[in-house]
Simulated assay, not measured.
Amino acid sequence: MKTPLSPKSTSGLRGEYAGAGDDFTVEQDWQSYSPEAHDRWRRLYAAQSALAARYAAPQFLEGLAKLDSAGGIPRFDDANRVLQAETRWTLVAVPGFIPDAVFFDHLAHRRFPVTRWLREEHELDYLVEPDVFHDFFGHVPMLLDPRIADFLEMYGRAGEKAMAMGALDMLARIYWYTIEFGLVREEGGLKVFGAGIVSSAGETVYAIEDEAVLRLPFDPERVMRTAYSIDNFQQNYFVLDSLDQLIGSLVGLDFGPIYERWRHEQPLPAGQLQAGETPFKAVRLESLGERTP
């Protein structure tokens, strides 16, 4: 989630917040991107799209193709014409992290905040803050899937209750382990659809092929109780049986009693199997009949 330590605080954060509106949106100012930035985008796109072709969910690949953004940093206005026609979503440019309440409000109204700045050359392999490549390449293709589109609106509407009950961390873990770091079963194997994975060269391979990482069936309450890493590869992933499960398992679920039961408890450490749980084993691409280099 895009959340600074305090509203409109720029301490330690990248991005130009001074010109942001009350909703933290700014102009994309596409003309200001340098030729070097567009070249950096093209190289990032080429590398990640090649990995995505092997490891990403087909819904991600379909969305990526529709966006046609291999040639340089995309114009959000162009993407919005595609999104509006498909799922009624709109991209809005933001300086970087934004407050929780603002983030939830954007999602609840089918507006997806996208950071406008691009990482520097020395940050190609690792970046802590989300940039335009993470947000656009990682998130926007999945916004073209109606199930993800509807889930994100529902998630935005759930934010007010979580904040009122002091359970925002618990709700945030649903977003983290799905929209950012989600895995889904596809054609007998595992595929990535979370933006934090698919926009990272190292984690794309790690999330699917590493034999030591813990992968568990998606269960909302277990997810809301599980800690996560913000500065390293995840030690834990949750696997959806299909994208339909993302909404199907949450619609009608009363979050209030779950928040009451666990909000004052320490989260479960990531990567640790609990009693009675059965993990997924790593699924290598050779087992799916695909050739590996």
Rank of each mutant, 00 (worst) to 15 (best):
S200R: 03
V184I: 11
D219V: 04
Q245R: 09
E209S: 08
D219K: 07
V192R: 07
L253M: 15
D244Y: 01
L246E: 00
V251H: 12
P220M: 02
D241E: 15
A207F: 02
V251F: 05
V198G: 00
G196Q: 00
Y237P: 00
P220E: 03
V205M: 08
L190R: 02
R185V: 07
S200D: 04
I247S: 14
V198I: 15
L250C: 13
L243V: 11
D219L: 02
F218G: 03
G196I: 08
G202M: 01
E203L: 08
E209Y: 01
Q235C: 06
T204K: 10
I230P: 03
G188E: 05
Q235F: 12
F193L: 10
V184S: 12
D219T: 05
I247F: 01
I197H: 06
V198Y: 11
V198S: 11
L183P: 06
A227D: 15
E209C: 06
Y228H: 09
I208G: 10
T226E: 01
Q235N: 14
E186G: 01
D210M: 02
A201F: 15
S249P: 02
Y228I: 09
T204L: 10
S242W: 04
L240R: 04
N236Y: 13
P220Y: 02
R185Q: 15
L253K: 14
M224S: 03
E186V: 13
E186N: 07
T226F: 09
R225W: 10
V251D: 14
R222M: 07
R225Y: 03
A227W: 10
V192M: 12
P220S: 05
E186H: 14
Q234N: 09
L253N: 10
V192Y: 04
K191S: 13
E209A: 08
G194D: 01
L190A: 05
D241V: 09
L253H: 12
I247Q: 13
E187M: 05
L243C: 12
A207K: 07
F218D: 00
G252R: 15
L190T: 13
S242G: 15
D210R: 12
G252Y: 14
M224N: 08
V213R: 08
G252C: 14
Y228L: 06
L250I: 15
N232Y: 05
R215K: 11
E187Q: 13
T226V: 10
Q245S: 14
G188M: 09
Q234L: 04
Y206R: 07
L183F: 14
G189R: 07
R215C: 06
I230M: 06
E211G: 11
A227I: 04
D244T: 15
V239D: 02
T226N: 04
G196S: 01
G189S: 13
R215S: 02
M224R: 12
V223S: 02
L216K: 01
Q245L: 02
G189W: 02
A227M: 12
G194V: 05
V205H: 09
V192T: 13
G248A: 15
G252A: 13
K191I: 03
V213D: 00
